[in-house]
């Protein structure tokens, strides 16, 4: 199922990195950020994020860590729109459509996945569902959530596909080894 997820995710212009087994995903993220020359990030509030935050501390500028502190809306949106990358976890992966499930849990999940031009997703421990149908049968009934399939896009000018309409131009997933 992970193989199908990756195939579909790549078809939607998403990027996929296999997270090393036993590996430290924080170290891998840091290496990626340094290779891309990225200096400022915002970090989401999912369970793995504190470890990621520790790895990145002192190496890149962490404008906001939503796992450690709550922010007012105005502050949150300014910090997220100033960051070069948003780093977040994910609630689930969906194979058939190659989709991430991201919920808004009060930790700026929507802003982190919308405002920075680059979205990095830590997904190697996320549950994988076969189809949208399978996920919807157990989906949270008390939270907002989005299916995200690749970077934001438009084809409004002569049907030419352009990535990075209003949301991120690139979305990179650290997923399970295949």
């Amino acid at each position: 199922m992970t193989g199908l997820f990756r195939q579909r995710w790549l078809e939607s212009a998403g990027e996929y990195v296999e997270a090393a087994p036993e590996g430290d995903v924080g170290r891998e993220l840091l290496a990626f950020l340094q290779a891309e020359g990225i200096k400022s990030v915002v970090i989401g509030g999912s369970p793995l994020m504190p470890i990621v935050g520790e790895r990145l501390a002192g190496e890149v500028e962490i404008l906001a860590d939503f796992g450690r502190a709550g922010y007012e809306r105005e502050t949150a949106k300014l910090l997220c729109s100033r960051a070069e990358a948003g780093i977040s976890g994910v609630d689930a992966l969906i194979s058939e459509t190659g989709a991430l499930v991201v919920s808004s849990t009060g930790r700026a999940g929507f802003m982190i996945s919308s405002l920075p031009p680059l979205h990095l997703v830590v997904a190697h421990e996320a549950p994988v569902f076969r189809s949208q149908e399978d996920f919807l049968a157990v989906a949270p009934t008390d939270l907002s959530f989005s299916f995200i399939t690749g970077p934001s896009r438009t084809a409004d000018i002569e049907k030419r596909l352009v990535l990075g309409a209003h949301g991120p131009k690139r979305v990179v997933v650290w997923g399970p080894e295949i």
């Binding site: 579909r8 078809e11 939607s12 058939e96 459509t97 190659g98 989709a99 949208q132 989906a139 008390d142 939270l143 907002s144 959530f145 989005s146 299916f147 995200i148 399939t149 690749g150 970077p151 934001s152 896009r153 949301g167």
Partner: peptide, 10 residues
């Protein structure tokens, strides 16, 4: 196969 975003908003 799927649009880039499906938002279920509450």
């Amino acid at each position: 196969r799927a649009t880039a975003y499906v938002n279920a908003l509450l």
